[in-house]
Amino acid sequence: MEAKLEPIVKALQAKFGGSFEEFRGEVHYFVQPAQIVEALTLLRDQHQFELLSAQTAVDYWPQTSPRFHVIYQLSSLAQNITFQLRVPVNGDSPTVPTAAGVFDSANWRERELLDMFGIQFEGHPDPRRILMPEDSDGHPLRKDYPLGYEEPQFTFNFEDIDLRKPYAKE
């Protein structure tokens, strides 16, 4: 582990317990949903992580507990390091406290996660869908959501598919 990351991991472990993983020099630290706001505040205020570089999620369906990992990728400009927090969330009514109070950019990112994964962010100031139409249902990036693949047309099946296509009228 990079020397600069060690005190951070120590500080987090002292405060929240929890474990971490390391891969190719990147540290992924696991915290519980209830602790995330506190952990982000700690990292921002005491370890100079000014930038929430990315916030995303991974769906591990069909596994259900935890089904999702919400990922917070932090960057420190002053120390020039990155750090990743991971929050495991269960599959039935996934809920995480919002980080919009800590980083403004979390506002839109959490709307995206709500839209794409259906993860609820408690206390979010503006919980609307962001990318998909308001009236759509389902959450596309979940693994149980179909890709919505349309069969390509070849000579042998051209007619069949053409008949099914909803061509527009004048």
Binding site: P140, Y145, P146, G148, Y149, E150, P152
Partner: peptide, 10 residues
């Protein structure tokens, strides 16, 4: 070829 894009504007 996915859920988000119209498969042809026709």
């Amino acid at each position: 070829n996915n859920y988000a894009i119209l498969q042809g504007v026709d």
